[in-house]
Design a protein around this nucleic acid. Structure first.
Length: 254
DNA sequence: TGGATTTGACCTTC
DNA sequence: GAAGGTCAAATCCA
């Protein structure tokens, strides 16, 4: 556990250093330095989260299960139970997200993008209906990104989110704050201009977390006030959620 | 009042 | 024909 805490503290230190640099530079930071710093911070937290995950009896707490949908359905049940008539689409990514992280298990997880719900359907052999979302900016940008959200039968506290298509709208909340590289292609994702307020929300989340956890541990975003080691673990999960989730989704399909 | 959600009907796929 | 996916009118809400 000590080694794990050391990793977390190291990550916090890197984040603190980046925070300080951003404050001092007042928006004139070299993008290359930002990229390197962000990757350092992300890598450090990734290590810490991995160490925490190994110690958890139920890895689903933070684990994002990416599934290939090739040749099958993404549901929790076997394809034959979920129906095989589902349209076969490419460029799909399915992940599982714990509902607790949203604060309200009835709300679908927030991935940083803005979605508009256009349908809901009861699914055969599923206890919970499936919700259909498309990008809010479909009409403006012609963005064809869609997602389906469904709670798992065997785990109502977990949502399975399946993404279809790619975001062609210019709203990449994470990339604005964390200019990062695509691990699969090695290509650097450049910050894009945006007309959406979503990135402000995302930046605010991370910044609030930095403020709350590093500056004042008792007042962080979603951080319980009890304090102690458990807070650190929860906070890492929060930050990981804020930092990594938006990176995971669009990068694969763009 | 404009945008988001709900929900029944319709379309598409198998 | 059955089931998943989408449309669009009605409704809700800030």
């Amino acid at each position: 556990m000590d080694r794990m805490l050391t990793q977390i503290l190291d990550a916090c230190g890197l984040a603190r250093e980046l925070d300080r640099s951003l404050r001092l530079a007042a928006g004139t930071v070299d993008p290359h330095y930002l990229l390197a710093s962000c990757e350092d911070v992300a890598g450090a937290f990734r290590k810490a989260a991995a160490a925490l995950r190994e110690r958890m009896p139920q890895p689903a707490a933070l684990e994002l299960t990416k599934q290939s949908l090739e040749g099958g359905d993404a549901g929790s049940s076997p394809p034959e139970q979920r129906g095989s008539r589902k349209r076969k689409e490419k460029n799909t990514t399915a992940i599982r997200v714990p509902a607790m992280g949203t604060g309200n298990i009835d709300n679908p997880p927030d991935d940083g993008h803005t979605w508009r719900k256009y349908g809901q359907k009861d699914i055969l052999n599923s206890r919970f209906p499936r919700s259909y979302y498309r990008c809010t900016h479909k009409s403006f940008y012609g963005c064809e990104a869609k997602k389906q959200v469904q709670r798992l039968d065997d785990d109502p506290f977990t949502y399975e989110v399946t993404y279809y298509g790619m975001h062609t709208c210019q709203t990449f909340p994470a990339s604005l704050l964390f200019a990062t590289s695509d691990a699969r292609s090695g290509e650097v994702m450049q910050p894009a201009p945006t007309t959406s307020s979503s990135h402000h929300t995302e930046m605010g989340r991370v910044h609030d977390w930095l403020q709350g956890t590093i500056g004042a541990p008792q007042q962080g975003m979603g951080v319980p006030a009890q304090g102690g080691r458990r807070d650190v673990e929860d906070s890492v999960a929060e930050l990981a959620d804020a930092m990594f989730n938006p990176v995971i989704f669009p990068a694969r399909t763009h």
